[in-house]
Design a protein around this nucleic acid. Structure first.
Lengths: 345, 345
DNA sequence: CTGAAAGCGCTTACAG
DNA sequence: CTGAAAGCGCTTACAG
């Protein structure tokens, strides 16, 4: 169709500076000795011509795309409610840019779509590595990437056999252990949990931490006090309703997502339950919802942007040094708020 | 460092199929007549060899990157609170993928950083076009892109002289007009507004619509009833406090952001103001906050994902057909909720 | 420190 | 319908 205007190339610069294009190339990549005078002259010509290296041509010969693929999860509708994904994305783009990479972003509606995108990215040589923003315990994308040994890192944890997988995660076991212990210390004895999708490692770990804490407090872990299954706004709300119908009603509930916790708080209040007096509520993600709830909700900040940054650091090492199996645990913070704290209010 | 394994190229396919690489190339691009037998044979060989075209090499010769740059605004910290950006991003990636483009995403901390990224993207030939997710009335990025006539589109509206600028936006004037009229119909006579950052076109348009509606209702537009200036969580909250301190207290307030509206509602309730009896509250974005507030807040849904989709459609036409100055207005929906509706509750 | 040459993996007139 | 050749804009041994 419309032809792009002819661009100024390394050749134009070379001609103007009276040197070879090899020399210009070496000035650009600055990884070889070029005399100061030549360098200066070439730089001047580049500037005068308004020359900029063509990244595409560079990629072709260097076999480096200079680009990292980021795969937003099939569940990314959550992104609309949950600051996790945008925040992680900020960490990702921020550090990628520092490391000299651009970010190719894809959002997807299913795991199969994710896999298709990953294959496309790899096969077309458009990316040097891939970040998975979420992974299931048995994840076809992880399996594929492992099988072709393409550099990747995941935010979250792989299954037990994932020794060679670069990943960054919170200590979800410990975070939930601490949160549960904190509630038992506050005298709670009947703690329910809305734990989310069992196909996710995070769910498994959080349940384990919860269980361990109960045991240490000599409380009984009851499987039917733990509500699992993929949930959205609606089903999460339903779980909360079920809990409110229990007899006896639990005196605390740990929720894996702020939004559901927020909904639960509203529900409990409608039923004239007092929070935290009758039932304490604690959750994860520390989003604006937890802060603005009435009462404000105790919540675990998972530090999504740091997770994003670290995922990129790992990925860059995987690409540039071939490292595999690196694991980083980022710290979490429990923000204690009135939904779990009785006070002189 | 570690050398990528030699990839299978068009040559390998050609050799195996006993044809020239030109022929293989034509089979790939399928824009020229190749005999069915040859096509079939080539396709078979590609499949057997596991061949995939190298997008980088293609880009180099076709001078098309196959990639669109998306510039997240300097204010993208809002993204963490506001579903607008993630939702728009979904629309963007979704449609870009349909149109055969990938998305290069950048998040930025300032307008200057945005401009630097834009220049980098263009100069390095990494993108074929650019979407600006927000623009100020006098925007250095818009000015630059216009001056070099690089294909771009913006979500939002350009200044009055932006005839040649592709953009997609809601009718913010009309939306606010309708919202204000709706409040006056409900008998509100003293309507304040927290309008946001005056450097944004959206702010200007919304104030105009608000003003027009007041005038049509024979109410007086008072400049000091309109609170402007860039605001975050905190300053928004402060504006709300100021409004609560007014004498007489306005009987309605229109807020340009759900989060602030949400905070305002809490504040008013603390001051024992009844909503909507004493003061009605209406806002924009229709986020989860507006739905979950108590009472739920009337809010204008701007349909961010459609804005994103349309921005890409415009951009693709700008790239492929050289079109400029296209303008699309996407519909908004006012969700009327209890924060403005007295009822038999 | 610098240059000539080959090549990265494709596409596209040109010629038949 | 198909092929040989040139070229997209770079980098990188190789040789000096």
């Amino acid at each position: 169709m419309l032809n792009k205007k002819k661009s100024i190339t390394i050749k134009d610069v070379a001609k103007k500076a009276g040197v070879s294009s090899s020399t210009v190339s070496r000035v650009i990549s600055k990884n070889q000795k070029i005399s100061p005078e030549t360098t200066k002259k070439v730089l001047k010509c580049m500037d005068e011509l308004g020359y900029h290296p063509n990244a595409i041509a560079r990629s072709l010969v260097s076999r480096k795309a200079g680009t990292l693929g980021v795969i937003m999860p099939s569940t990314s509708k959550d992104a609309l409610l949950n600051p996790f994904f945008p925040e992680a994305l900020r960490g990702i783009t921020h550090w990628a840019s520092k490391a000299g990479y651009d970010i190719l972003l894809s959002t997807n509606d299913s795991k199969n779509e994710e896999l298709a995108v990953i294959k496309k990215y790899i096969n077309s040589s458009k990316v040097d590595g891939i970040v998975l923003m979420s992974s299931e315990i048995r994840d076809i994308c992880v399996e594929y990437l492992s099988s072709v040994d393409f550099p990747f890192s995941i935010i979250g944890s792989p299954a037990e056999n994932g020794d060679r997988i670069n990943h960054v995660d919170n200590d979800n076991y410990m975070a939930t252990y601490e949160l549960t212990r904190y509630l038992t210390m506050k005298g709670r004895k009947n703690i329910a949990m809305i734990a989310g999708d069992l196909s996710l490692m995070v769910t498994k770990k959080r349940i384990e931490g919860y269980k361990k804490a109960l045991e240490e407090s000599n409380l009984i872990f009851e499987q039917n006090q733990v509500y699992t299954g993929s949930f959205d706004e609606k089903t999460g709300y339903e779980y909360a309703s079920i809990i409110a119908d229990l007899n006896p009603i639990p005196d605390a509930v740990i929720v894996t997502d702020d939004l559901v916790a927020f909904a639960a708080v509203r529900l409990f209040k409608q039923l004239k339950l007092e929070i935290p007096k009758d039932i304490a509520v604690a959750s994860f993600n520390n989003s604006v919802l937890s802060r603005y709830s009435n009462p404000p909700i105790t919540s675990v900040d998972v530090n999504a942007s740091e997770l994003g940054e670290e995922a990129i650091k790992l990925l860059v090492r995987a690409i540039e040094k071939g490292e595999r199996g690196n694991k980083i645990i980022t710290p979490h913070i429990i923000y204690k708020r009135k939904s779990t704290e009785m006070d002189e209010q």
